[in-house]
């Protein structure tokens, strides 16, 4: 190996896979910190538990596929999947929900398609959608109550025993519906003023959630500045979601208002960390604009008229499904050619 001849340029590749993945994981830490501050230790434990399971499943499948385990574990892609999944799951979800989700994500959504770089669907969101449709009760009733609303929040060991095994306290006292869920169900028989006076909405938009989303927004801007991904997908997704919620939801007495769409639920996590996955999104910049806008529009449609309160996972999966088709019609013009081969519109 020492006599390997390397042609110029002799600069170091700045963006290796492991670097990118490590930066993404580090960028989720502020958000994780804010979640832990507002919603207790549940999400933190979920992230750790998902990471342990992800490494175990990844090693197992790599072993079965006769591939070098150490080499592929070092690219941190399994850990990114685990962290994103852990952040999306309800904080007090039982351990086996996380186990099923991460197992399905790593084994089916990632390795059956050939591992990193080949998976057509975002693995974390496949795992999330699977447990959401399979265990609807566990996935909707285990959202933690924001700590400011509790007399004495769950301690670390109490949270641990709630997730892994028999809870030492009644879990019902520590969970409540998410703001998006509350607004959607209350607004049909109340006015906006009455609904937003509920403690779950806090002083600004949605207690706790607004700071979580702000943290992910800041980390996302940091990642764009570090050139981990381009601005096209998140901006077009957020613009589409805002436009949809202004056009249809201008009447806050009937529909969820725009600010709640942007700052409650998993909007910013989805826009900056999930939709921007380079493997499963569209490739060209123009394609990314269509891809992001599609996610924004679908999020609004499913949140407003569908039966699920949050819709990031389904929208991302549906647009993952459409991404190859978008690529097909948004191939950039090759230099020296008038028009890209299959493109219909102007290149």
């Amino acid at each position: 190996m020492t006599l390997l001849r390397i042609t110029s340029p002799h600069t170091q590749g700045a963006q290796r896979t492991a670097n990118v993945m490590r930066t993404v994981i580090l960028a989720t830490l502020p958000g994780l910190g804010v979640i832990t501050y507002f919603f207790g230790w549940g999400t933190f434990i979920n992230v750790i538990w998902c990471s342990i399971c992800a490494v175990a499943f990844e090693s197992l499948v790599l072993g079965l596929r006769h591939q070098p385990v150490g080499f592929f574990l070092k690219d941190y892609s399994a850990l990114v999947t685990a962290v994103l999944l852990g952040l999306s799951l309800p904080p007090l979800a039982p351990w086996w929900v996380s186990l099923v989700a991460i197992g399905f994500a790593i084994v089916v959504a990632k390795h059956l398609y050939g591992g990193m770089g080949y998976n057509p669907f975002n693995p974390a969101m496949v795992g999330f959608a699977l447990v959401l449709v399979s265990f609807p009760l566990e996935m909707t009733t285990n959202w933690a109550t924001p700590s400011p609303l509790l007399q004495d929040p769950l301690t670390f060991t109490q949270t641990l025993s709630t997730i892994f095994g028999t809870p030492s306290v009644a879990v019902d006292a520590y969970t409540m519906a998410t703001p998006l869920d509350v607004y959607k169900h209350e607004i049909s028989h109340n006015t906006a003023v009455v609904v937003t006076a509920k403690p779950v909405f806090g002083n600004f938009v949605a207690l706790g959630w607004e700071w979580v989303n702000a943290a992910f927004l800041l980390s996302g801007v940091f990642l764009i500045w570090k050139r981990i991904f381009t601005w096209h997908t998140p901006v077009s997704m957020l613009v589409a979601l805002t436009v949809m919620s202004i056009v249809f939801g201008w009447d806050a007495d009937r529909y969820t208002p725009p600010l709640l769409h942007l700052y409650a639920g998993a909007t910013m996590l989805g826009a900056f960390f999930i939709a921007t996955d380079p493997v499963t999104s569209a490739v060209s910049n123009r394609g990314k604009l269509f891809y992001g806008a599609g996610i924004g529009i679908l999020v609004y449609i499913i949140r407003t008229w569908g039966s699920y309160p949050d819709a990031i996972a389904f929208s991302v999966l549906l647009m993952n499904f459409a991404a190859p088709f978008i690529d097909f019609y948004t191939q950039p013009r090759a230099y020296g050619h008038a028009k890209a081969g299959r493109s219909e519109s102007e290149g």
């Binding site: 089916v108 959504a109 059956l112 398609y113 057509p120 669907f121 496949v126 959608a129 699977l130 449709v133 679908l298 449609i301 499913i302 008229w305 569908g306 039966s307 699920y308 819709a311 996972a313 389904f314 929208s315 999966l317 549906l318 993952n320 499904f321």
Partner: peptide, 20 residues
């Protein structure tokens, strides 16, 4: 085989439309 698995995952994504 992978086509069937893909179709299954797509079906999972389409469950998001339920209730529309």
């Amino acid at each position: 085989a992978i086509g069937m698995i893909t179709a299954g995952l797509m079906s999972l994504a389409f469950l998001g439309f339920s209730g529309l």
